[in-house]
């Protein structure tokens, strides 16, 4: 017990949570469900990446689907044409998307607000056209197929052979946890604080000595590389990449997830990715309807709940706290009253 107390209940809770998450594949036998869960994990990576930019730094991009695509295509090309394994394509993709992210950020972030949105939209579209038309390298509309799974991993007790969906789950979960830890470390540092300051008031931030442009570009670069990593995982998980996955719709989907979950919140990112992935899987038969509903959702969320689901939760939490406080105050008064009554009877 002493050990547990030392560890702290918070950490204990986390440990139990992670163990419970690891048990999921044992309970789910339907491979389709496993596929959806894995997809959710990949989306969580994307949303965490975009949220760093949108939620924590206040810079909106609707071109991050392109970074996802670049990561996926790099994994596809390097693994099918050069025979590199997943453990090599991953760092290559992260590095490449970081470099491209830096360049796009360096150019785009000279623009503000809606102009930045337009620039990232243009970038996303251009990259999509490259995927579609550079047939020699990207395979054109057909894309690239037969991307190998990651090499078999042996942990003594069990082996991940990557022959079924459930095998990918621990690997993806690992990367999601790593991404969450990195995100947490980043935002709880001088760098992370300077990003939130920029989001809240650029002029005031700059007057406090924060190099606004440089900070934004660095965050854009990090954000892009999250998406690159997600792309690599996606390519090795689905084994096929084709242009239509990484079009404008993908960028909007990621942004919607950020908005729905709640900007600037890790739990929000997880919630947003989970809900919308399940939702869009449910609406598989009608993809056009999906975009219509996404658009409507964004408008409604922006109008009534600009802080997303996490915003609603914190609103009600505060309300409950306030009520509890009121009750406590009233309760205190009541005991005093009782005493008075008692005195009266004596």
């Amino acid at each position: 017990m002493e050990h547990i107390r030392k560890l702290g209940y918070r950490r204990l809770g986390l440990l139990i949570g992670v163990l419970a998450l690891l048990m999921i594949p044992l309970g789910i036998t339907n491979p389709y469900f496993m596929y959806v869960i894995n997809l959710i994990l990949i989306y969580i990576l994307l949303v965490l990446g975009l949220d760093l930019l949108v939620g924590y730094t206040g810079q909106v991009s609707i071109g991050h689907g392109a970074f996802f695509g670049i990561g996926a295509y790099i994994a596809a090309i390097f693994s099918t044409k050069l025979g590199l394994s997943f453990w090599l394509t991953l760092p290559i993709a992260i590095l490449a998307t970081a470099i491209i992210g830096f360049i796009i950020g360096f150019i785009g972030l000279k623009l503000i607000e809606e102009y930045l949105v337009m620039a990232t939209l243009a970038f996303g579209t251009i990259i999509w056209l490259v995927f579609l038309n550079w047939t020699d390298v990207t395979g054109g509309p057909m894309g690239i197929a037969l991307i190998p799974p990651p090499p078999e991993m042996n942990f003594g007790l069990f082996t991940l052979s990557f022959t079924q969906y459930a095998d990918y789950y621990p690997l993806l979960l690992f990367f999601v946890i790593v991404a969450i830890i990195i995100t947490k470390l980043l935002i709880n540092s001088g760098f992370g604080r300077s990003c939130t300051a920029i989001r809240d008031d650029e002029l005031a931030a700059q007057s406090m000595g924060i190099p606004v442009f440089r900070t934004k570009v660095i965050m854009f670069t990090i954000s892009a590389s999250y998406c690159g990593a997600a792309g690599t995982l996606y390519a090795h998980f689905i084994h096929v990449v084709s242009p239509e996955t990484f079009n404008f719709t993908m960028s909007v989907t990621i942004l919607t997830m950020v908005m729905i979950g709640g900007q600037g919140s890790i739990i929000g990112a997880v919630l947003g990715a989970s809900l919308l992935t399940i939702f869009s899987e449910a609406l598989r038969a009608a993809p056009e309807l999906r975009m219509l509903i996404y658009g409507l959702l964004i408008v409604i969320m922006m109008m009534f709940f600009p802080r997303g689901i996490m915003g609603i939760i914190s609103f009600y939490r505060k309300l409950i706290e306030k009520r509890a406080l009121l009750k406590k105050l009233k309760g205190g008064k009541a005991t005093v009253d009782v005493k008075k009554e008692g005195l009266g009877y004596e």
Partner: peptide
């Protein structure tokens, strides 16, 4: 007055220490 709307008093003033803490990524990670 230009304050950061989503920050507490402590967090706001902590922003002012940016020049002291810097924003190096590797030490933060």
């Amino acid at each position: 007055i230009r304050l950061f709307p989503d920050m507490t008093v402590f967090e706001t003033v902590l922003i002012g220490t940016y020049l002291l803490t810097g924003a190096k990524l590797a030490p933060a990670l």
